[in-house]
């Protein structure tokens, strides 16, 4: 276990969090925490309450229990969504997207050179500044993920939350994305909370893993999680088991 995991204070603490929607208990007394400067994976099967948990953290879901974030600085959360809900045929460029996000002045009165400069700087962090004039609807899955990661990095947040941000990306795109995350964590001492289904990615990148399925099913160092013999029993997630078999590891 690395020193960072032992010594770091908790940046995010979730205590006894419960959510009930339309008579269904989505989360029941979930308690876990994210240590500062770590890459923390939140995993679980479909319908386990991962997205609900993220919504609670982001302040978009009424819940019982306590969620505390102890920021050291000005306290910004960067959020990388799973997808953008928009018509992909709309003529909206990556530059437009940054303009509507970074300025209050309506975009139809001009995009602003300063905003474009900031957008290029942000896109450079994910090596995607060449995409600034491309239509968002025309980006590949990997390119869109990098653009969404870029927007979350200006200004640099203390906590970066990724909601299945590497899903629907091919193997090559996923590797580039992982490298970016690891570099950002090291260079900027970012705390990263990553919701993921991808066991291989968790193995390669995560420091700590919390598994939920309505309640907490696992909470420990990523190394311990990866050495578990029966991950499928914990998460009842066929995809994880299949992935294990593909990698030649008997679950």
């Amino acid at each position: 276990m690395s020193d960072k995991l032992i010594d770091s204070p908790a940046l995010l603490s979730v205590k006894d969090c419960s959510v009930k929607l339309g008579g269904s208990q989505i989360l029941a007394g979930v308690t876990w925490e994210v240590k500062a400067g770590t890459l923390h994976a939140l995993i679980g099967p479909n319908g386990a309450g991962k997205t609900t948990m993220i919504r609670c953290i982001m302040g978009g879901m009424p819940h019982q229990g306590e969620i505390r974030i102890r920021f050291q600085g000005d306290g910004r959360i960067g959020y990388v969504p799973q997808l953008l809900e928009f018509d992909h045929t709309l003529p909206i460029t990556v530059g437009d997207f940054f303009s509507i996000m970074l300025r209050n002045k309506p975009i139809f009165l001009g995009k602003g050179r300063k905003v474009r400069k900031r957008a290029v700087e942000a896109l450079k962090l994910t090596e995607s500044d060449h995409l600034i004039d491309r239509l968002i609807g025309g980006l590949s899955g990997g390119e869109l993920r990098r653009v969404l990661l870029s927007q979350a990095l200006i200004p640099l947040p203390e906590l970066l939350v990724l909601d299945e941000a590497a899903s629907n990306v091919d193997e090559f795109g996923a590797r580039i994305f992982e490298d970016l995350l690891l570099r950002l964590k090291e260079e900027h001492n970012l705390t990263i909370l990553m919701v993921s289904h991808d066991l291989s990615m968790i193995r390669r990148t995560a420091d700590w893993v919390t598994g939920i399925n309505r309640t907490v099913t696992f909470d420990g160092p990523a190394q311990t999680f990866c050495n578990l013999k029966k991950i499928d029993e914990l998460f009842i997630e066929t995809a994880l088991v299949v992935l294990n078999r593909q990698e030649g590891k008997t679950p």
Partner: peptide
């Protein structure tokens, strides 16, 4: 004019808009 950018941004993803 005041809400144009905000309404466009929240149509993309409400949680992402909240972080702004």
């Amino acid at each position: 004019a005041i809400i144009f950018n905000r309404t466009m941004l929240s149509s993309f993803n409400p949680i992402m808009a909240k972080t702004r």
